[in-house]
Design a protein around this nucleic acid. Structure first.
Lengths: 222, 222
DNA sequence: AGCAATGCTGACCGTTCGGTCAGAACAATT
DNA sequence: AATTGTTCTGACCGAACGGTCAGCATTGCT
């Protein structure tokens, strides 16, 4: 329940807690809440198991702290969107931001995915209240863009889900993607290529003019 | 290792095995391989735990049988595609088929997702060999469509991943989708709307003419 | 140097894990 | 009624689970 960080934590405590959180994020993201064991988290953090509980209290408290940390990172996306905004610029930035976030916090993204797969027992309220309002408000603006003739008349909810799923895929399904394309990991060139592909297909597919702001970006395209 | 079904199984044994497989699919899909317990599978199947092991041998053997059953269902997708095929028809059918498969086998899809999230320890070889070849052969054909001018010059691998992720999202993230749109489940109308949205955006986004075959399908679109 | 506060952890707790097995229950054949 | 083969399951095994705690080590203040 109480998940605010104490304000007067020592730097040492802070360092160790981050070490535990990062280790836990890795284990939880691979095996889900039930499948993760405190022992394997302790091994990953190179700490005795009792130490994990000393700092985090319980498995559940640790898990909830992780979920909150991840959700905090996802704010600040699509914050400053208005009916007057240019759809091309906004959607482009949305796609790019999501791609970057997924690459920056791959374990956090997978943790989130595992939580949803399990039926979102801990994120139930967050999804049904905060995220729902987030989507509803953005959807309303996108719908105005459609009526203004700035883009096709598509259901904005499906558009948001499309961008989420298409970008998240490359972090959450990285095990599949890398094996299918025969690489150990996606490099920067791949990621740039994917981002550009998604911008091209989604913007064009929604009838949005490619971003008018001149950014050097002319590549292979019949 | 040996995972072929015995040919001379009694109808009774067959029925019980299916009951166990369905129960296990549900539990594994929610909690992953490690997070699933034989006891909870037994409870789900309303059978004593020892019975599960009597029929399936071990937790791992049961899990592998489930993976194989799911992979078998996924064959027959995009089998008859050639350079002469019409991209619009093929991509449309691909999207529709994937949407239907996800709705028909939601637990199987989630099971697959959990396996990938865990790093695909059991599907490693399948992904790196069979699925890789499947993608490579389809990608080659799509690339020919591009050079023939039938569609934009996009990377076919990203296109395939896009269709996978966009369609799978509605089964694997159903917990998130339903809470965000405020429904208990997606109904047929939602699914038709989503399918049509995806066809519209992806085909148009790839520069493919919407399927020429006249199927009554004229809906809201500025 | 002395002392309280905090950091730390090996040992332990009851429970649940995957898996084994002896033997009861049942069905089919003689 | 006896025999045989299969189906079934309660009871049990050692290991691992999440969590507790007594007590040692370390630190910081006086």
């Amino acid at each position: 329940m109480s998940l605010e960080a104490a304000p007067n934590e020592s730097a040492h405590r802070e360092r160790i807690e981050q070490r535990i959180l990062n280790a836990a994020e890795q284990v939880f993201s691979q095996h889900g809440y039930r499948g993760a064991s405190l022992q394997s988290i302790a091994d990953q953090a190179v700490l005795p198991k009792a130490n994990i509980l000393y700092y985090m209290g319980s498995k559940q408290a640790l898990y909830i702290r992780l979920l909150n940390r991840m959700m905090r990172r996802w704010n600040a996306v699509l914050e400053d969107i208005t009916p007057a905004s240019d759809p091309g610029r906004v959607l482009s930035e949305f796609i790019r931001t999501k791609m970057v976030l997924g690459q920056r916090y791959p374990e956090g993204s997978k943790l989130f995915a595992a939580e949803i797969l399990a039926g979102a027992p801990f994120l139930n309220e967050y999804l049904a209240v905060e995220l729902r309002e987030w989507v509803a408000s953005r959807a309303a603006i996108i719908r105005q863009w459609s009526t203004q003739g700035k883009m096709d008349n598509v259901d904005p909810r499906w558009l948001i889900f499309l961008i989420w799923s298409a970008t998240q895929h490359y972090t959450e399904y990285s095990a599949q993607v890398t094996r299918v394309i025969g690489k150990d990991a996606l490099d920067d060139k791949d990621l740039a290529s994917i981002t550009q592909f998604l911008e091209h297909v989604i913007l064009k597919g929604c009838g949005v003019a490619s971003q008018p702001v001149s950014e050097l970006q002319k590549t292979a395209d019949s």
